[in-house]
Design a protein around this nucleic acid. Structure first.
Lengths: 216, 216
DNA sequence: TAGATTGTTAATCGATTAACAATC
DNA sequence: TAGATTGTTAATCGATTAACAATC
């Protein structure tokens, strides 16, 4: 175990490991090797061992990793051994879809507040949470110890919402708007805009694929 | 302009450039420098110049890049000078939210087919597209020249859907399910699962707690 | 013990950044 | 011309992979 700074690439792989480990746990598989993990997750086994070794000696030589123990450790590393309160800003189509995903409850993340500007939406219930006006964001976020904000508002509003989340003391933002947010360096932002993703995918379609006739 | 193979990191930045260039175009700004782009997009100017230079000499020394011309060029590179047909598989909350995003229409991407397994959903209209049973996927995708598939089905079904999309000759997949899909190497897959993103964000919340110590 | 597999160091590979001649 | 900015090479930085002693 080293006290190096961990790269974001490493951090982003931890949830991927966790997810497959949970599946193994459900199937009551007791241990797993880096080789098996690598095969299943399309990663190099050495990379997996190195990733995990940044945080401790979790494996056993000749045996592999104890599934339950590794799950526990990764959850600790990701701060998912405690409940993480999340606020959702923007109760449009996408925001509503995300709030209905209770999948992350299992991972100890919980949406505890939803905000919107539209008079029609304010006061309605989404997943048993009352939509609040955005003016209440700073106070509510502070009071409820919200740590992560999800932004699903239109592009033009995104930066303003981010500013308010920062003011309220948020630690991280998941941004679905296609805007580069300007935030202090101690606030982490991940871009989650799927249209950017789609556009980059289009690049890979030029493999001479203008073929309409398929002989197979 | 070199005939090197372009890395995915470069390709993923192109839509980011394109988006800001579109904004400049709307504001009728005629030219932009790599420095200005870099500042706005939090990127190194040299990196931007290098990215663009992979594809051609688009800039003018002493002047910068002509906004309209660069937009046209990036759209060509990304194959967005032609309409890209997209199929959406999974008409749940998230799928419906994505289908309503008409934003990508502007980028020449169009959802032309939607599939689901649920009897309640089949036959209903989403954004004036009739939801079809998943059994019709292969044929419809082939007939409509669909190039990209978006997967928004539950985890357990994701691989099966991917297999069908591949069978139908799709070129790329945007996968919202938290599963590592196994596809032939000529099919590009981008993971778009936001819960993975959220979990990795949680890692960065330990700011209140222990401070990372370097030098040991 | 023999086979398996980790943790870790060293080697490799790839991506980012700095620097600058060319030139608008 | 003087200032600005590109395209590109070289330098740097960082991430991935290979290799292997340690050891279960």
């Amino acid at each position: 175990m080293k006290s190096e700074k961990i790269s974001d690439a490493v951090v982003r792989r931890l949830p991927v490991y966790l997810r497959y480990l949970n599946e193994l746990s459900r199937r009551e598989v007791p241990t797993v090797s880096s080789q098996e993990l690598g095969q299943k997750l399309d990663l190099n086994p050495a990379q997996i061992r190195k990733d995990l070794a940044y945080f401790g000696d979790f494996g056993r030589k000749g045996i592999g990793y104890d599934v339950s123990y590794l799950i526990e450790k990764i959850r600790q590393i990701l701060n998912l051994d405690q409940q993480i309160n999340v606020a959702l800003v923007g109760a449009g189509n996408l925001g509503q879809a995300l709030s209905n995903y209770n999948a992350y409850l299992r991972d100890n993340m919980k949406i505890v507040a939803i905000f919107d500007t539209s008079a029609e939406k304010i006061g309605t219930q989404i997943n048993s949470i009352t939509v609040q006006p955005i003016e209440e964001l700073v106070e509510t976020v502070r009071q409820n110890h919200v740590r992560i904000g999800i932004i699903t508002v239109p592009n033009i509003e995104a930066q303003r919402v981010a500013d308010q989340l920062v003011e309220a003391g948020i630690g991280a933002i998941l941004n679905f708007a296609p805007t580069i947010l300007k935030v202090p360096s101690d606030v982490r932002v991940h871009a989650a805009d799927f249209t950017t993703d789609l556009m980059s995918l289009a690049y890979y379609l030029n493999a001479g694929k203008e073929v309409t006739v398929d002989e197979s």
